[in-house]
C-alpha cells in the first residue's frame, strides 16, 4: 500500500514537472488550470518526492525554483480575488520558500529574483485589493530576506497605506439599518498609530539601505507628518524638495510640506511650499487646489480663483498628478512587472 502511494506521488511529481514545463514554455493558463484542480494533499505528496531518489530532476536548478515559484504565484493570484485567501496564501508561502536564499543547490544567488518577486507580488496583490494578503507576504519577506531594502520599502509603504486609505476598514465601523452606525474611535486611532510606527521603522531602515531613493524618502517624510513628528518630517521632505533631482518626488515632497504647514497654521509657509511644488511640476493638480484654498483663507480671493483655474482649464498642459499614483500603480504597471518576472524565469 505504501509502495503504491509512493508510486502515485512519483507519478504526480512527473505530472507536476509537465505543468512546470508547460508554464516554462509560456502556457500559463493551462498549467495554472491544471494545478488548481489538484487537492492540496496530492500536491504536498508530489512535492515531498522532490530531490529524493525518484526525482528525475534532482537537484532542482535555480530555473526550476524560479518557474515553480511563479507558477504557484499565478495560482495564488488566480485564487486571491475571491474568498480563498488561506489557499492563496499557501501557494504564496510555497513560492516564497522556493525563492529563499540557500534553497538552491547551485551557487547561484537567488536573492535578486526574490527581491523583485516580493515587490511584484505585493504590488499585484494591492492592485487586486488584497492588501492584507500582501502584508502576509511581506511578513514572510522580512523573515526570509531580512534587511532587504526592497522588502522594507514595500512593507513601509503598505503600512502607510493601512494608516491612510485603509484606516477605517476592518470591523471598527458598522452601519446597519437596524442599529445605526457606531464608530470605535479609540480602536481606529490605536491601530493607525501601530501602522504608522511600523511604517516609520521600516521606511527608515529602507532609506538607510537605499539613501539615493528620493521617492522612498518622500514616503518616510509623509509618514513622519502623519505621526505629527513635524520637525523630522520637515528635514526629510525639505531635503527632497531642495535637491529636486527627481521632479515627481520633489513635487510630492513640497506638496506634503504645504499640507504640513497648513495644518500648523503657517499659511504663508504653506503658500511657499505649494508654489515650490508647482515649480517642480507645473502640470500637476493637487498643489493648485491646495494653493488656491490657502490663498482664499488669507483673503486673496482673486488669486485663489486664478490659481484654481490653471489645472481646471488645462492652462499648464494636460493635468496629471503623482499624488493619484502615490499609493497605487498606474493601470497595467503591476501586471507588466509580473510579466517581466515570468519572462525572466522562463529564460
Amino acid at each position: 500500500m505504501e509502495a503504491l502511494e509512493k508510486d502515485k506521488a512519483a507519478s504526480d511529481l512527473r505530472l507536476y514537472y509537465a505543468m512546470l514545463d508547460a508554464y516554462g514554455s509560456g502556457d500559463e493558463t493551462r498549467s495554472v488550470d491544471l494545478l488548481l484542480r489538484w487537492p492540496r494533499a496530492r500536491l504536498e505528496n508530489a512535492l515531498a518526492e522532490v530531490n529524493r531518489s525518484n526525482d528525475p530532476r534532482a537537484p532542482w536548478s535555480p530555473r526550476i525554483h524560479g518557474l515553480a515559484a511563479m507558477l504557484h504565484t499565478d495560482v495564488a493570484l488566480r485564487l486571491a480575488p475571491g474568498a480563498e485567501t488561506k489557499e492563496a496564501f499557501w501557494h504564496i508561502d510555497l513560492a516564497s520558500r522556493l525563492l529563499s536564499p540557500g534553497t538552491t543547490q547551485k551557487a547561484v544567488d537567488i536573492r535578486p529574483l526574490a527581491e523583485r518577486w516580493y515587490e511584484a507580488v505585493a504590488r499585484a496583490l494591492r492592485d487586486r485589493s488584497r492588501a492584507y494578503v500582501a502584508e502576509l507576504l511581506l511578513r514572510l519577506g522580512r523573515t526570509r530576506l531580512p534587511d532587504n531594502p526592497v522588502v522594507l520599502r514595500e512593507s513601509g509603504m503598505l503600512a502607510e497605506l493601512f494608516a491612510t486609505d485603509y484606516a477605517l476598514i476592518g470591523s471598527s465601523i458598522a452601519y446597519s439599518t437596524s442599529h445605526g452606525g457606531t464608530v470605535r474611535l479609540k480602536e481606529i486611532i490605536s491601530r493607525r498609530a501601530r501602522n504608522l510606527d511600523d511604517a516609520a521603522r521600516w521606511l527608515r531602515q529602507a532609506v538607510g539601505l537605499d539613501s539615493g531613493n528620493e521617492l522612498l524618502a518622500v514616503h518616510l517624510g509623509r509618514v513622519l507628518t502623519l505621526r505629527h513628528d513635524d520637525d523630522a518630517a520637515v528635514v526629510v521632505l525639505g531635503a527632497v524638495s531642495t535637491t529636486g533631482k527627481h521632479a515627481e518626488a520633489a513635487y510630492l515632497a513640497s506638496l506634503f510640506l504645504g499640507g504640513l504647514r497648513e495644518r500648523q497654521g503657517q499659511l504663508d509657509a504653506a503658500i511657499d511650499a505649494y508654489r515650490d511644488a508647482l515649480s517642480h511640476l507645473p502640470s500637476a493638480h493637487a498643489a493648485y487646489v491646495g494653493l488656491s484654498q490657502v490663498l482664499q483663507r488669507v483673503g486673496q480671493s482673486d488669486e485663489s480663483r486664478a490659481v484654481l483655474l490653471v489645472p481646471l482649464t488645462h492652462k499648464a498642459g494636460p493635468t496629471e498628478d503623482p499624488l493619484w499614483w502615490y499609493h497605487i500603480d498606474k493601470p497595467g504597471v503591476a501586471e507588466r512587472r509580473l510579466e517581466s518576472l515570468r519572462a525572466e524565469v522562463r529564460q
Binding site: 477605517l168 446597519s176 439599518t177 452606525g181 493607525r192 499640507g259
Partner: peptide, 23 residues
C-alpha cells in the same frame, strides 16, 4: 441576517487627504 448599507464613514474621519488634522 440583516440588511446593511455601507457608505463611507463621515468626512471628519478622513485619513486620505493631504492635510490631516488630529481626529
Amino acid at each position: 441576517t440583516e440588511t446593511v448599507t455601507r457608505p463611507a464613514p463621515g468626512y471628519r474621519l478622513d485619513f486620505h487627504s493631504g492635510i490631516q488634522d488630529r481626529v
